[in-house]
Design a protein around this nucleic acid. Sequence first.
DNA 1: GTTTATGCAAAACATTTGCATAGTC
DNA 2: GACTATGCAAATGTTTTGCATAAAC
Lengths: 147, 147
Amino acid sequence: MRKRENPLVAQFMDVLEEQGYRDTLPRRAVLQAIAQKEKHFTAEALREQLPGVGRATIYRSLKLLVDAGVLCRVLLEDGNLRYQLSRQGHHHHLLCVDCGVSADLIGCDIESRLKNVAASHDFQVSGHWLEVYGRCRQCAEAQAMMA
Amino acid sequence: MRKRENPLVAQFMDVLEEQGYRDTLPRRAVLQAIAQKEKHFTAEALREQLPGVGRATIYRSLKLLVDAGVLCRVLLEDGNLRYQLSRQGHHHHLLCVDCGVSADLIGCDIESRLKNVAASHDFQVSGHWLEVYGRCRQCAEAQAMMA
DNA sequence: GTTTATGCAAAACATTTGCATAGTC
DNA sequence: GACTATGCAAATGTTTTGCATAAAC
């Protein structure tokens, strides 16, 4: 029983083709694997999941997908970086520290506030990186149960 | 002409001793080197600067200092992590993308706002990581000059 | 004297690169 | 057919670990 191809794969493949990249089987395999994940992951984890795809291809694909805006990198609380599907443009993540699921925080309005604060430091803001850590409802409930 | 020991060294050494760590020459050397830096740095850079200290000691010291709250890790825009002296408790950094200097953003009031936004996602916030990128005044002026 | 820290070398990881081959357009 | 992507293996780079020795308390 094979999994049918995730509809996102074709969609992301289009994005890549628009940027001049070719439609190849390894890339589709990578996209398919990524589209299925609901948690962040590492390059090595993806590699284990796709033994048929060469290591270099995995790494090259991940970089390419980040550039293309299809993937984003998320920073864990301990400083480790993970990859995760990017569903829209600028956004931030709510990362559950227990189970690892992440929700997207859209409507980020901190930029204007940052600009104000930064101005008083003689600083011209051009960007920011924000990750929010906590617990999703399920994990919060489980946590409360244990206490 | 030797540099005199930076007063911060003794101060940080005290913090470590309170936590049960011993006062050793390599640790002082690391602290001294760190106290002098006004930019973020990597473990390897520190190692090159302190050829007399073993690699393992450098790495072990850095980890220890992060735990002790003396050092903090900063995230660059490209996803690389650097180390940098931590002068106070919870704070964020304004990082100059050109020269690398960083200013501390204190009085971070985003937490309450985050809690609100997150609540609507059924999410219980426990922490966050924020880095702000831009240009310090000098670099902003230099930039304007070039344009 | 007991305990902790250091230095070294080796191991363990993680990521990148060169290059011949295969696949796409 | 021209150009891009892949796979492999090797190179690179970074961080960790085991263990005997040295230093600190």
